[in-house]
Design a protein around this nucleic acid. Structure first.
Lengths: 221, 221, 221, 221
DNA sequence: CATGAATGAGTGTTCATTCAT
DNA sequence: TATGAATGAACACTCATTCAT
């Protein structure tokens, strides 16, 4: 705002991109109050315009949420693909993924938190899209774990599905307690989280699933 | 829970306790739509009364949420105390806690989910209370991990705080994918989760925290 | 309004039916300003409640409009069926229909006006329903004219469709100028309108439709 | 559309007059959605400019409507004056007027429809002007009917005012059902409508107005 | 001429809560 | 206890209009 003078650098610094500002404001507000409890007014207040004016940049509150998600989608899929291109063994790959995924959470606390907590407020095609993305994502991670089993760095009996949800949830919890302004350096935490995940995958012994008959018997008692 | 017997035919299903019905309905509705997006009307509809009538049983929507939390608080503290009374080594205790805590989540999917996702919608004293409870809870779990370190079943260098958040989050994610009507027997899952947590605690090697100086240096580069 | 005294008749007179009041207010407001330009606030003001309170009686503005239409539908179909049951010759029937239909317009100026001017603001099923009703209505009137032709009281060459629209439109115009408080007695006007319609049907000679070839030729010149 | 090349011949179709385009677009939009429900945005979209740009051509939405009306006013008064200059008997004149007035409606469905349905959305002087025009118009038509009565081609007892409104309304209804793309040739319809109007004027017998006393008596019963 | 960002008042609608009956 | 009418503030969203660029 200060240096609108040299119009050479205008685009890069001086003239703020309002559309981006709106997005950023929405991320903060939605994270702080929750999507449902947050109002468009809140977002407008943070940006510093009247709420009616927001509608130059968005189509609806839901579309605003969706737009935040798209950005996250792009980034998370870029990460997964980067991992898959890595020329290392499966456990290494899982480690690196866990580290970078944690790091993404730590660097984008609010956006990450939204991504996993507010998707239910989407509707129709948007909901379908996000759900599909999520399933695809889980499948790709499951594959990494299966590869570990194949390569012998994880027990054959390890339940891939449970392990997958387990590690995703663990990382998913980061935004609950982590504060960027706190004493914990993000890179360190990411490393520790990767350590914990690798330890879990490497050392969890398989456990036979109970037969359905047994399960039913137990339920009755 | 045991002795609702006398009081007429109440227990046998005759006269339903309306206040409990309200609570149960609220749990379901709040879980399905999220507290903020759910309306008192929704709850009333499920109970089968007019929304005005609900106010014979509750003081306000927030108080209704708080009451759900109190119940969860009682149950989760009962569990922790039960664990602390267990006469086994620390790792065993942690294992048992992980198993039962997972089980509680699986048996109370909705309530558990609420407990960890909707607390921000409380205000004032109620918010303070819930926050205090949570911190106390984390402290007690941290103690279990520290005991493992002391007893040699966990690496001295393991970061207790991170491990604590890690396991809590992992369990916390259960309601996201678990469906009571599905094929996964709760007890089995609880066991597997306990296995994964124990593996993580037992086999994660410590990692030195970077000194602040180093951290700052890295940030700049 | 006068006799709220004897509370015995409360239901019948004293205690006004608010739902009906809302409907009546809406008819007036929608007629005065047009449906699109009228606001729910206007209706609420006339009823004397806050606009939010209106939603105890209506589901939406559009549903309110639809409800007004249903009433008109019922009344107009009752009329047509009454006519069809009449044991007189076709011209007499048409006369009586024209008279009573005009009278209905004169006695329900606002509602009648709405019925024929604001239907485009309905959507979906409601629009389809109203459109279907209208077509059915036109068919029944067309039948009366065809009967006149068959009985020899109208020229065989008279274009039924045009005559039908002609008479409907003529009556439809009544609300434009007629004021209940004015000097014109409704019954008299209704009689005159019936006279004019009968004269038109009885004395309009047929006129051959131009062949398509001719029509095209004329267009080019 | 073809020859936008020689911009010298602007009038001949070369350089489109943007102001006219705006007017035409407004006619369509206002007719399709109704003035109140139509937005300036809709008009701008059809013209292909941003809505802000429209204000180079119009002063306000209402002024845009008024301008559409002025054009109609000019055309309809030209017609009436042409009729009055006709050297034929009164019934012939009325016939010719009915035919050409119908034809104008059929050739300008949208504009005609607007002219008679949306005038209430004007305010102040503009409303007064349009109302005055309408009254003047009705007076001139009433004169034609009175002339018929004087010349003996209409019954002396025919109520001029009612007949006048009757025929205007009948014609006014044309845009409701007529579709330019349909099978009905406009000239034919105009002729039939003229026939029907003439039949009505020529053959409607007078009917005595009830005395006020009688009217009041009837009302009470 | 044209743009597009911004305004500010207004729209229909929802909702937690109250209260006389 | 239960009802249902009523409140009043809030909400997401729209729109005619303005104006610096």
């Amino acid at each position: 705002m200060a240096t609108r003078v040299q119009s050479g650098k205008a685009a890069a610094g001086g003239r703020r991109n309002r559309a981006d500002e709106v997005l950023r404001a929405a991320v903060e507000i939605f994270h702080d109050k929750g999507y449902a409890a947050a109002s468009i007014q809140d977002v407008a207040d943070r940006v510093g315009v009247l709420k009616g004016s927001l509608y130059h940049y968005i189509d609806s509150k839901e579309e605003l949420l969706a737009r935040i998600f798209e950005q996250s989608d792009r980034e998370s899929f870029a990460l997964i693909e980067e991992m898959e291109a890595l020329d290392v063994d499966a456990l290494q790959r899982l480690r690196e993924f866990s580290r970078l995924w944690s790091l993404w959470y730590l660097r984008n606390v609010e956006r990450a938190s939204l991504y996993f907590n507010e998707w239910k407020h989407l509707t129709g095609d948007r909901l379908a899209g996000v759900t599909a993305q999520r399933h695809e994502y889980e499948k790709r991670i499951a594959k990494m774990i299966d590869d570990c089993k194949r390569e012998g760095t994880a027990d054959k009996g390890l339940d891939t599905r449970y392990a997958c949800f387990f590690l995703l949830s663990a990382i998913n919890g980061l935004p609950v307690w982590y504060r960027p302004r706190g004493a914990d350096p993000a890179e360190h935490i990411a490393n520790v989280y990767a350590d914990m995940i690798v330890a879990m995958v490497q050392h969890t012994k398989g456990r036979k699933r109970p037969s359905k008959a047994k399960a039913r018997a137990r339920k009755k008692s």
